[in-house]
Design a protein around this nucleic acid. Structure first.
Length: 972
RNA sequence: GCUCUGGUGGUGGAAUGGUAGACACGAGGGACUUAAAAUCCCUUGCCCGCAAGGGCGUGUGGGUUCAAGUCCCACCCGGAGUACCA
């Protein structure tokens, strides 16, 4: 009987579905294991061969774990909110829900064909109100909590209110936007609006005017990880900095825990490094530099103290952040960012015009220009001077945009000798450079001769007062101690991580469960809007229908088009906008949540996906704990994987998540790149195409992308090529032995390069099992590699051969002698495959199956005793053929209820092993030895077998190295 | 620039410090066939040699070791992340 995958694969897929073979229960006495894939965004293009790579790997591991007796949770769902569906809606007017539904159906069809073991009963979709109810709920919890640095966890905002009423901000150490200082009396005297304004400063989900990445092309705000080189990741539109009132998540409160948590998880070093860099923890010191008042008297009428904790005098001071406190003796100037609030106050009249011009210029420069011109030095002198608090030297204050408002304090002490940017600045403006660190003890040189600054944090301090002669590390500590002693600064840690902007001016996302009350403030009479949460029991707040998906004429987000988008506080329901009276009916928030909202907690929801009472039940999370294995792309390193960890840590603080880290082990599948094929058109003769091997000079031909689907093993199907496009209808070919050979190149997989491979075609041609094995055989899962179908025939051939192996059993052609040999082969295979799966080396597992099959075929097959375990062994990789063969062997239950075969050492022991023996590299021969031979026995055997010329009888070797089963090395 | 990766035949890739190139593709040769498909066998890192055999080989140069693709140092080249982060 032929290996008829076209008949067999759908048949078993039905069998699995009908019997609910992959249904997973939360109640089991088996050990649990949770294997998760990053759920896909269902795009209109459908799956390409890159998607399934990770799914196949996780499917293999999930099935393997199941066969090893684990209760395996392996769910799948859709990250269904997103920009493409919305863009499509704007163009066509088609509702995003409709296109999304259609795309999901297509994805599901494609996924089903590949025979995955997902428990579809647990499917989640981020756009489903039953799901996003919990996304909104989590947002409300973030809104209702603040981060207490003393407790080092999130705490209810109510406890903060109680605290304020009792003792104000005294002894409070909490994550906040701005450090506030008020007493209980002050708090108690404030009205509700003012109090809400203060609380907003502490909430983990907060509303604030912040500089955001505004993308006019998309009409929305973007998070930092959605912007690259000043352009939006989606669409590549320019992005500008703009001050807007936005919801943000105070993820920075968790910065340290996000760094620390990386120690506890099994991720690749490179991904951990990506996250560490993104969080960007740096230790250093904050130091106050006071203004030199004497030299600036004329510019400081009524200057206010800017150093409340430290300075009793009304002298403006600048707090700077440095990671090199040891170089404080080398400060020759200081630099403020153009946004710095003290610039106006300190600038001298003579410099005022210049400074204003510079600040204006810097503000109007787009983010993109700024980043592109990083190497261009610009800046202006303010005319003012500061005092170095340790040396009491007078140093000029400059303004330059190389100092960023968003990092540290927006002001720096410049040490040009030991910082490359300060160095470039000093050189450009002719400012002095003073060496305070030397790499070779006591050796100093003239910095004016330097080509670059000396940035290394190594060497010794020189010209540095009390730290002169100390090693750099010691000097750092000594300077900070001194600064703290003098009360002019302190040890501190800075993070590069920014709070996550959570508002998007889009339609197709989760609505914020928030409405706004307008109130008039008692003290100054200004009106302000107070954000009020929708009661939790009223969730989900469903996304309203809108006539149009574009922003409104007044520039409001698409939800501004909704007719029914107001909150009736008394009836606790969404009502018509026309009823807004700001007394009982209020406007609802018009922004929606970003893509990462829905994907930040989906792995928890899979544990208990139909629960309407809770996010997930206590019992479910208690059983599953967290994800044991997460498979997905490393491109989510600075986005989803940070947000999800934050989300989980927050839920952990609430006592809901049971593990602080959501993803214990993480495997990054490598990106599948496209492999494009080219034909070469002669420049001299436009109708002539020259085969690759016949081209003498690449200048004589034009390479043209050709659809990879009409190329097989780099050989062009010339007839299909002529039909492919009208202009090639009369194409002529200069061939190599009748074959037209195409060139190839690795490029991104994209439609325009005609190199997109659709998995359906391959399933149709070779079957799902072949495709699964082939994708694994391609190379290590983690490695990026170009897609290339050149080897798929070999894998398909292997499956046919494997199939024939089982036909032998039916023909009963097994001999006893060969059976013993076959058992050895089987047990070697069990051991190797098991080891390989455990270390996620699926490509070598496939090779092992090939070797095993070849050997058994050579032996003229094997017995049931051999073939039965083999069917189980291959089941994770090629489930359909395994299930078919398993049933042919007479079983009537699924192979996935079988037990994973164990290997027996007795079959692995070889009687004798050939040992290569080496005499100090000069001579080598091979002897036979019992496999279990000891070093002494080995030596005796060597002496007995070695040839007499070189091994003198009775001679003793100087040294013998004996590695069992490997090699004996003897030094004479 | 900084950080992380990787560099092995014509190709994809194997090698707990122990016979480098498993396995597969491609290529060449052959068997079976009227033919094709399918299947099977042989050769295939490079150089010398009819052969036996020998020499050279894991980006480059050093080092550690009886033994290095693997460990250490320096450099060169790719890929990824990040980017005026003080």
């Amino acid at each position: 009987m032929e290996y008829d995958f076209r008949n067999l694969e759908p048949r078993w897929q039905n069998y699995w579905r009908e019997r609910g073979v992959y249904h997973v229960s939360n109640v089991s006495n088996k050990p649990h294991y949770y294997v998760l894939d990053m759920f896909p965004y269902p795009s209109g293009a459908g799956l390409h061969v890159g998607h399934p790579l990770g799914y196949i790997a996780s499917d293999i591991y999930a099935r393997y774990k199941r066969l090893r007796g684990f209760n395996v949770l392996h769910p799948m769902g859709y990250d269904a909110y997103g920009l493409p569906a919305e863009q499509y809606a704007i163009q066509t007017g088609q509702h995003p829900a409709v296109t999304t539904e259609k795309n999901i159906a297509r994805y599901r069809e494609q996924l089903d064909k590949l025979g995955f073991c997902f428990d579809w009963d647990r499917e989640v979709r981020t756009c489903d109100p039953k799901y996003y109810k919990w996304t909104q709920w989590t947002f409300l919890q973030l809104f209702k909590h603040y981060y207490d640095n003393t407790e080092n966890k999130a705490m209810p905002i109510a406890s903060l209110e109680a605290r304020f009423a009792q003792k104000g901000t005294e002894e409070l150490d909490a994550a906040c936007t701005e450090v506030l200082d008020f007493t209980a009396e002050e708090w108690n005297g404030w009205d509700e609006a003012k109090r809400q304004q203060v609380l907003m400063n502490y909430r983990l989900a907060y509303l604030a005017d912040i500089p955001v990445n505004w993308c006019a092309g998309l009409g929305t705000v973007l998070a930092n990880d959605e912007v690259v080189n000043g352009l939006s990741v989606r669409g590549g539109y320019p992005v500008e900095r703009k001050l807007m009132r936005q919801w943000s998540l105070r993820i920075t409160a968790y910065a340290q825990r996000l760094v620390d948590g990386l120690e506890k998880v099994e991720w690749t070093d490179s991904l951990k490094e990506i996250q560490r860099n993104w969080i960007g923890r740096s230790e250093g010191a904050a130091v106050w530099f006071p203004l030199d008042v004497k030299s600036n008297e004329n510019v400081l009428p009524g200057a206010q103290a800017y150093m409340p904790q430290f300075d009793p005098q009304p002298v403006p001071s600048f707090e700077i952040f440095t990671t090199r406190p040891d170089t404080i003796f080398g400060v020759t100037f200081m630099v403020l960012c153009p946004e710095h609030e003290l610039i106006d106050q300190i600038t001298t009249p003579e410099q005022r015009q210049q400074v204003q011009d510079y600040v204006t210029w810097a503000k109007n420069r787009s983010e993109r220009e700024r980043q592109a011109e990083v190497k261009k030095v610009s800046g202006v002198f303010t005319g003012a001077y500061a005092v170095n608090p340790l040396t009491e030297e007078r140093i000029p204050i400059w303004v330059s945009d190389y100092v960023l408002a968003g990092y540290g304090t927006g002001a720096i002490m410049a040490v040009p000798a030991h910082d490359s940017r300060d160095f470039a600045f000093a050189r450009h403006f002719g400012l002095p450079i003073r060496q305070v660190v030397t790499q070779e003890k006591d050796v100093v040189s003239d910095p004016s001769t330097w080509a670059e600054s000396m940035d290394a944090k190594t060497g010794w301090s020189v010209n540095s007062g009390f730290v002169t002669g100390m090693k750099v590390k010691e000097a750092m500590a000594a300077v900070i101690d001194k600064i703290e002693e003098l009360g002019i600064g302190h040890r501190t840690v800075n993070y590069r991580l920014r709070d996550a902007i959570f508002s998007r001016q889009r339609y197709w996302g989760e609505p914020f469960p928030v409405y706004y009350k307008t109130t008039r403030q008692q003290d100054d009479g200004t009106t302000s809007q107070v954000a009020c949460p929708i009661p939790e029991e009223c969730l989900p707040l469903e996304l309203p229908e809108v006539g149009e998906f574009k922003p409104t004429a007044t520039g409001e987000p698409p939800l501004g088009h909704a007719q029914k988008w107001a909150w009736d506080e008394q009836n606790r329901s969404v009502v018509e906008n026309s009823r807004i009276d700001n007394k009982t009916v209020f406007p609802l928030e018009l922004s929606t949540m970003p893509g990462f909202a829905g994907s930040s907690g989906y792995y928890l929801r899979y544990m208990d996906p139909t629960n309407d009472e809770r996010y997930f039940s206590e019992q479910a999370v208690e059983y599953w704990q967290n994800v044991d294995l997460y498979v997905g792309g490393a491109e989510h390193g600075t986005g989803h994987l940070i947000y999800a960890r934050f989300w989980n840590k927050f839920l952990f603080d609430l006592g809901m998540a049971k593990k602080e880290e959501p993803f214990q082990k993480l495997i990054n599948q490598g990106m599948i790149q496209g492999r494009s094929n080219f034909v070469y058109r002669s420049k001299a003769d436009n109708g002539l195409f020259i085969s690759k091997g016949l081209i003498k000079d690449m200048d004589e031909v034009t390479p043209i992308h050709v659809d990879i689907n009409i190329v097989d093993n780099d050989v062009l199907d010339v007839e299909k090529f002529r039909q492919w496009r009208p202009e090639f209808a009369d194409a002529r070919f200069e061939t190599e032995g009748g074959k037209y050979v195409c060139g190839w190149e690795v490029e991104k997989m994209s439609k325009s390069m005609y190199n997109v491979q659709n998995p359906d075609d391959l399933v149709e041609r070779y079957g799902a099992d072949t495709l699964r094995l082939y994708e694994m055989f391609l190379g290590p899962v983690e490695q990026a590699k170009p897609w290339d179908t050149n080897g798929i025939e070999g894998v398909h051939r292997f499956l046919k051969k494997f199939w024939r192996l089982f036909e032998c059993l039916n023909n009963d052609c097994v001999s006893d002698a060969s059976n013993t040999q076959a058992m050895k082969i089987l047990h070697q295979t069990i051991k190797k495959v098991t080891d390989d799966i455990e270390r996620f080396s699926f490509n070598t597992s496939v090779s092992t199956f090939m070797i095993c099959t070849n050997q058994l075929t050579d032996l003229k097959c094997g017995s049931r005793e051999v073939l039965e375990p083999l069917a189980v062994l291959i089941a994770p990789f090629a489930p359909h053929i395994a299930e078919e063969l398993w049933h042919q062997l007479g079983h009537d239950t699924t192979v996935f209820d079988a037990e994973w075969p164990q290997y027996d050492d007795k079959y692995l022991v070889e009687d004798t092993v050939k040992y290569p023996v080496q005499f100090n590299g000069k001579m080598r021969f091979t002897i036979d030895l019992p496999a279990a031979a000891t070093q002494a026995e080995a030596l005796e055997a060597v002496k007995a077998s070695a040839d007499g010329q070189r091994w003198m009888a009775g001679a003793e070797p100087k040294k013998v190295i004996f590695v069992p089963k490997k090699i004996i090395n003897i030094v004479l």
